[in-house]
Amino acid sequence: MIRIEHIGMTYDKGRVVALQDVNLEVNKGEIFGLIGPDGAGKTTLFRILTTLLLPEKGQAWVNNYDVVKDYKAIRNSVGYMPGKFSLYQDLTIEENLNFFATVFGTTIAENYDLIKDIYVQIEPFKNRRAGKLSGGMKQKLALCCALIHKPDVLFLDEPTTGVDVVSRKEFWDMLKSLRKEGITILVSTPYMDEATLCDRIALIQKGSILSVDTPEGIVHSFSGQLYAVHGQGTYHLLQATRGYEGVASCFAFGDALHATFKPGAQGPALQAYLQSKGHSDARVDPIKPGIEDCFIQLLNQ
């Protein structure tokens, strides 16, 4: 549904590399996650795919249309929700939705089924101006506006950034029901925990794709054994663990530390070492890595 070949992009007369030889394929009907921090190049890629920016190098197709030559056809068949709220602040909810429906030559009624589940949540406020809405409501309105012409592909650029856990969960539930309608979704996020909700993901950093796979596949490719270190006093435990010569990397990770070892070093030896350093309650256990562990490992390579 989306094919990206050797896309490259720089800004500031070549001083800033935004994208570097990016190759990706997104299949029809999948939720594909682009996972990476600010400045990784996610938004640039979205803007190229939605025909708002011409790539310097490479080619890309959305729905078999070329992003440069067939930009008009692409604009008619995709929905785009930019990271920055871009609806008309001085139009009401209903006016915004009507506007976008009209621009795409359709009506709210025609595709109401598609947005119904989302729209009913903001409908009680349909006469309120978009500029006066809360973050969560703006997000839902923006999604409705991106969907109102029944696009084949939906581009969502960091839809959940700065949104609390409960609203994020609701948003992902909405995406799952849209997938059932056959819509292909490319979504970017800086939250690693959302990666597991995608069918496939690409980890991106500094304009390059580090890895593309299913979430399970990414986790499976973690090299070496990961260990969790539990104990009181995170800061001192962290320093003590990093001070152990067999430790290759160690990071705070939720309620534990996650550590990997250099060849030959073992968990029990670290546990004994930490206990000898006054961390009498320290416990070192092998664990399964998560997406974030994999990302950290790829970043450090």
Binding site: D38, T161, G162, P190, M192, Q205, L299
Partner: peptide, 18 residues
């Protein structure tokens, strides 16, 4: 720490602990 990569986020927390 919104929007930073996981390694930087942890380095940032190292500063907080310190």
């Amino acid at each position: 720490t919104g929007g930073v990569d996981p390694v930087t986020r942890r380095q940032f927390w190292d500063l907080i602990y310190e």
